[in-house]
Design a protein around this nucleic acid. Structure first.
Lengths: 137, 137
DNA sequence: CACAAACTTTACCTTTACGTAAACTTCATA
DNA sequence: TATGAAGTTTACGTAAAGGTAAAGTTTGTG
C-alpha cells in the first residue's frame, strides 16, 4: 500500500498521509467520520485524492489556529455549496467576516504576547549574566 | 459582595471578575483548582487582588491563542521562580523560545488564512452580483 | 428576624478529539 | 502456504475545560 514516488502524486494511502502530516491513521479516519474528508474506496481500502490531501492540510492549519473540527467542516460545506443560492452566499459572507474578525484579534494577541516573550527573554538573559558575575566575586 | 467602584480597585469579588471578563464563577474557581490563581480568603469567601485579575486576563488571552491551562500555569510558575537558579532561568528561556516559534508559525498561518478569506469574500460578492444580474435578465 | 442575594463545596455530567485494544480481511512475498 | 504488514470496523477509554445540580453558609437590609 505504501507508495514510493514523491513528486506529483494523485492518490495516497492512509499511511502515506499519516506519515506526511505526522498524524495517526486514527485521526484521519476520525476526520472522515466527522464528515471532513470523503476518500474513495477500492474494496474497503481508502484511496485519498489530491483534494483530500489539501483538506487535511487545511484541517491541520485550522487546528493550529484553534478552529474546531465542526467549524472547519462548516467552512468546507459552505465552500462547496450551491453558488446560485444568494442566501447561502450571504451566510458564507457572514461566516467569513466572523472568522476574519476573530483572526485579526488573534493577530493582535500574538503581537502582544510576542513582545512580552521578548521582554521575558531579555530579563532572563540579564539575570543569567548577573548570576555569573556574582559567582565570580 | 458586589463592588460598585470601577476605577483603580485593588480587590475584587468573584462575581466582579466573572462579569468583567464574561466568564462563569465556575471557570474562575476551576482555574484556582488548577493552580493558576491563588486568591486570599476572608472567611471562606475569595478575595481577588490586582495580580489575580492580571492573571485572569493572561489566562484568557492564552486560551484565545490555544494555550492549555497547564501551559499557562507552567509559564506563571517559571515567571515566579527563583531568579538565582540558572537552570530555572535556562528552562524558562527554552520555553519562551518554544512559544515564540509556535506563535510565529501561528502568525504565518493567520496571514495565509486571512488572505484566503479575503479571496473567498471577493468571490462571494462577485457571485452575488452575478446572481442579481441573472435575475434581472 | 427573616429572607434573598451572593458565596461556598462536592460531585457527577458533557463535549471534543482522539488513544487503544480486539478481532478480522487483504495482499505481497519468502 | 503461511506469515507479516497494512488495512478495516467496532467499541470502550481518556484528558481538558468546564456545565449543572444539590445542599449548605454568610451577609446585609427591610
Amino acid at each position: 500500500m505504501m507508495s514510493t514516488i514523491h513528486s506529483p502524486q494523485s492518490t495516497y494511502s492512509i499511511s502515506d498521509l499519516s506519515k506526511e502530516f505526522d498524524i495517526t491513521t486514527r485521526s484521519i479516519r476520525f476526520y472522515e467520520d466527522q464528515g471532513l474528508i470523503k476518500p474513495k474506496r477500492r474494496g474497503q481500502t481508502r484511496i485519498y485524492s489530491l483534494k483530500d490531501r489539501v483538506r487535511l492540510k487545511l484541517i491541520l492549519r485550522g487546528k493550529r489556529l484553534g478552529f474546531s473540527l465542526a467549524e472547519t467542516r462548516r467552512l468546507f460545506e459552505l465552500y462547496d455549496a450551491d453558488k446560485s443560492s444568494s442566501t447561502q452566499l450571504q451566510t458564507m459572507l457572514d461566516l467569513v467576516n466572523e472568522k476574519k474578525t476573530a483572526l485579526q484579534q488573534q493577530m493582535d494577541d500574538i503581537k502582544v504576547v510576542l513582545m512580552e516573550l521578548n521582554s521575558a527573554e531579555q530579563q532572563c538573559k540579564a539575570a543569567l549574566a548577573d548570576n555569573l558575575l556574582k559567582k565570580k566575586s
